[in-house]
Computed example of a mutant assay.
Amino acid sequence: MDLGLTGARALVTGGNRGIGLAVGRALAAEGARVALLARDGDRLAAAAATVDGAVTVQADTTDDASVRAAVDSAAATLGGLDVVVNAAAPRAEAPPAPGLAGLDDADFLSQVDTKALGYARVVRAAAPHLLDGGGRVVNISGMNARSTGNITGSVRNIAVVALSKNLADELGHQGVTVTCVHPGLTVTERNADDPAYLEKAAQNGLARLITAEDVAAVVAFLCSPLAAPANGAVVTLDGGRPGTVWA
């Protein structure tokens, strides 16, 4: 299937590793021109070398001025923007103790600032470019949005869902669609050699591991012109977590 992404101009945040990097590769494979954004310049350069034709822009998504400069630079280099994929977020580490006892105020604020508000900063900076001809925004959230046990992880991810729907309502009638995806336990370079993680990650409805490339394939579709009806949708990509019904 031709996704219609040949020549599309895409910005991927968190593009130096994990799902973000896999998305960059998937979009490039579909013929898109890709700009990868991350904080770590060295890691970013190494990642870009694995993505056909990719360019890089460096920014800290907790710094609005940095974000605006990076987004404008990406748009100038690519000649505009058609796609934004937000994947720049720190790992949601399990708290040292459950519930309120494990809630770290500084970590909570940092996680929300980086993931939820950081995503908003990127879209705000990119919107004038996207509105020039319509576009796609895909926000990477996570299954902590649908589970308890990690307050910070749940709040930062459900905030991304709320942000995505607000943006879908606001930008959709202007031709920009916004979707949100919930990866579950996903195999990336961070955990590919962790037997305990891999065993747990395979415990889904498919009884197999879900890789960053699996997630990226769905994200690439959501970035395509074919996915316009999905505006405002939240897509679960966890292989089918057993025991829960989502209406």
Rank of each mutant, 00 (worst) to 15 (best):
L103N: 04
P96F: 11
L103G: 08
F108I: 06
S73Q: 12
A75T: 05
G99L: 07
L109A: 14
S110T: 15
A87R: 02
V112Y: 07
V67I: 08
L78R: 03
P95G: 04
Q111N: 09
G102Y: 04
L78H: 03
G99M: 06
A89T: 14
D104C: 08
V84I: 05
T77M: 09
A75K: 00
V71R: 02
A94C: 05
A74C: 06
L81H: 00
A97F: 12
F108R: 04
F108Q: 02
A106C: 07
V85H: 01
A70N: 05
G99K: 11
A94F: 10
A74E: 04
Q111H: 13
S73R: 08
R68I: 13
G80W: 00
V67M: 04
A70T: 10
A74R: 00
Q111T: 10
V83W: 00
G99Q: 08
V84N: 07
G79E: 08
F108N: 03
G80F: 01
A92C: 11
A89P: 03
A88C: 06
L81M: 06
V71T: 13
A76E: 14
A89F: 06
D72I: 02
P98N: 09
P90A: 06
V85M: 02
V71A: 12
A97G: 10
P90R: 09
L100I: 14
D107V: 13
A94M: 10
A88G: 05
S110K: 13
P90D: 04
D107P: 01
D72S: 14
K115H: 11
A106T: 12
D72Q: 10
A101G: 15
Q111L: 08
R91N: 12
V85L: 02
A74K: 00
D105A: 13
G80Q: 03
S110E: 14
P95T: 13
P98M: 08
V83E: 01
R91M: 13
S66Y: 00
L78F: 03
L78N: 11
